[in-house]
Each structure stands twice: as C-alpha cells, then as structure tokens.
Simulated assay, not measured.
Amino acid sequence: MESLFHPKGNQHIVDRIDKLTPIALSEWGVMTVSQMLEHCQLPLQVVYGTKEIKVNWIMRLLFGNKAKKQFTNAHPFGRSMPTAKEFKITHEPDFESAKQKLKELVTKFSREGHDAIKVTVHPLFGKMTHTEIDIAQWKHLDHHLKQFGV
C-alpha cells in the first residue's frame, strides 16, 4: 500500500484528485463529486487537530476495535459503507474550492510528515500509530477516488 507520508505516494493521490471534474459521476453511493471532496477533508482535519468530533463511549466500546481493524488492514473498503454523521455533507460545495482544499490537506501529510499529525487518539478507534493513521487516510481517499472513477 502506498503512503501519504511518502512524496511519490502523496503525489499519486493528488494526481488522481486532479483528474476529477465537476461532472464526475459516482459509481456507487449518493454523494456528488463536490460533496466527496469536502467529505474527504474531514478525517484529515481530525488528525491535524483542526476538527473535533465526539463519539459516544458505548459506540467506541462496541465498535472501535473492529472498525480500527477494518480501516487499518490491507483490504480495500466495501462499497456504500456507513458514514459518521459529522462527515456527511448535505450542501453542495464549490467544486474548485473543495478540490484545492483537499489537495492542500493531502500534501501536508508528506510536506510536514509526522509533525502534521496532532491527534493520535481517534474518537472511535482509540490510540493509533502514525502508520495506522497513514493507512486509514490512504484507504479512505483511495476508496472515494475509486468511487468517482479515478
């Protein structure tokens, strides 16, 4: 699996983001391409410490370990997985702004390395290593870029 920390892997994701157009259609799910671009920013903002989400402790206890394993293993995500309510985008963002912001957040991973990561205790998954964070972020971005055919 590629790494967002590694410049080559990071550039691969940015290049795929650049291939998106405002009229790209999803192969599954209900998000528009602009909503997906904004949605993908939110988990990055969580690990950068600029967005905070709260998870019910019961959810963390019941589902945290299982979800963490799913997000950090080598297997790709399945289609139409559930999304945390804090990550659902219900408005229609500006495509170019959302695209540019996502690219900035992605490049921060390789530009700043581990120093970019301010939050290593995920609200649902619990304590995470930098490697686990990298894998989860990569898989999430890859999943949604595939959703829109890139």
Rank of each mutant, 00 (worst) to 15 (best):
Ser34Asn: 05
Val14Asp: 06
Arg16Ile: 11
Trp28Tyr: 15
Ile58Leu: 14
Val14Cys: 06
Met36His: 07
Arg60Lys: 10
Lys127Phe: 06
Ala116Ile: 12
Glu52Tyr: 12
Asp142Val: 05
Gly49Trp: 12
Val46Lys: 08
Val46Tyr: 07
Lys69Ile: 10
Ile17Asp: 04
His12Gly: 14
Gly78Glu: 05
Ile13Cys: 09
Cys40Lys: 04
Trp28Lys: 13
Gly9Tyr: 03
Gln137Pro: 03
Arg79Val: 05
Pro93Tyr: 13
Gln45Ala: 12
Gln137Lys: 05
Asp134Tyr: 14
Lys85Asp: 15
Thr129Tyr: 01
Lys54Cys: 04
Glu86Leu: 11
Glu132Val: 06
Asp18Lys: 15
Gly49Ser: 12
Lys68Thr: 05
Tyr48Arg: 00
Glu96Ser: 09
Glu2Gln: 01
Pro7Arg: 15
Phe71Ile: 08
Pro93Asp: 14
Gln41Phe: 02
Lys146Phe: 02
Leu44Cys: 08
Gly78Cys: 00
Arg16Ala: 07
Lys54Gln: 02
Asn56Tyr: 11
Ile53Met: 15
Lys139Ile: 03
Ile23Gly: 06
Thr50Arg: 08
Gly149His: 04
Thr32Leu: 12
Glu86Met: 11
Leu62Ala: 03
Ala98Arg: 11
Leu61Lys: 08
Pro43Val: 07
Phe5Gln: 05
Leu37Asp: 00
Ser34Asp: 09
Phe63His: 01
Leu4Arg: 07
Pro93Gly: 14
Ala24His: 14
Asn56Gly: 10
Glu132Gly: 06
Gly113Ser: 14
Lys66Ile: 09
Phe71Gln: 11
Val33Arg: 02
Ile117Asp: 09
Ser110Leu: 12
Lys108Met: 07
Thr131Ala: 08
Thr21Ala: 13
Ile17Trp: 02
Ala136Asn: 00
Lys127Leu: 07
Leu105Ala: 09
Pro82Gly: 02
Pro7Ser: 14
Ile133Lys: 03
Leu42Asn: 01
Pro76Lys: 04
Thr107Cys: 09
Val119Asn: 00
Lys54Pro: 03
Val121Pro: 05
Trp138Pro: 04
Glu132Thr: 11
Ala74Ser: 05
Glu2Phe: 02
His130Asp: 02
Val150Cys: 04
His6Thr: 13
Asp94Pro: 09
Asn73Thr: 10
His143Leu: 08
Met128His: 01
Ala98Met: 12
Gln147Glu: 02
Asp15Leu: 10
Glu2Tyr: 02
Met36Gln: 10
Lys66Gly: 06
Ser80Asn: 15
Leu145Pro: 13
Cys40Trp: 01
Arg16Leu: 11
Thr72Met: 11
Gly113Ala: 14
Val47Asp: 00
Thr129Asn: 02
Lys118Phe: 05
Thr131Cys: 00
His143Met: 09
Lys51Phe: 06
Pro93His: 14
